[in-house]
């Protein structure tokens, strides 16, 4: 629910600063979510995360799982009619968590055999997106 109490204008400005995107440009056409290969895994798909940021609903955005299923494949960036680079916005949300030292990927918890089997660039990429 939106009340005056849970609106954080500073949050929207912070996301805009990290992502260098004009979040207000989004008019919610939903093309990003329609093309997103991982939207089905997200509680809040890309267009909803953007909408929550537009409204300044910091808590809801930081609780959303959507950004953690973004593989930065950039399909949405290619298709956005307003030129919003959505993966940069998703990265900004991730970065806010990581800079607050909230780690999503618990590295010692990854199965050792599985880790040895994965190509190093998968691990490097996951470490850089999900840990600090």
């Amino acid at each position: 629910m939106i009340t005056k109490l849970n609106i954080d204008k500073e949050f929207k400005r912070k996301i805009a600063e990290i992502s260098n995107q004009r979040i207000s440009d989004c008019y919610q056409c939903g093309r990003c979510t329609a093309g997103c290969p991982f939207a089905m895994f997200m509680d809040s798909p890309p267009n909803q995360v953007i909408r929550l940021i537009q409204l300044g609903m910091r808590e809801e955005v930081l609780k959303a799982q959507g950004p953690w299923f973004c593989a930065a494949c950039l399909v949405c960036q290619t298709r956005c009619p307003k030129g919003v680079d959505i993966p940069r916005v998703m990265e900004a949300v991730r970065v806010i968590h990581l800079r607050a030292k909230e780690c999503i990927l618990d590295i010692p918890q990854i199965d050792y055999e599985y880790m040895l089997d994965l190509p190093p660039l998968a691990l490097m990429s996951a470490f850089s997106k999900f840990s600090f």
Binding site: P37, F38, M40, F41, W68, F69, A71, A72, C73, V75, I104, L105, I110, L118, A122, L123, S125, A126, K129, F130
Partner: peptide, 18 residues
């Protein structure tokens, strides 16, 4: 279309599906 990329590390189901 994306193959699942680095999601294979902590959410392998997403990569399996993609």
């Amino acid at each position: 279309e994306c193959c699942g990329s680095y999601l294979v590390v902590n959410t392998p189901d997403a990569a399996v599906n993609a």
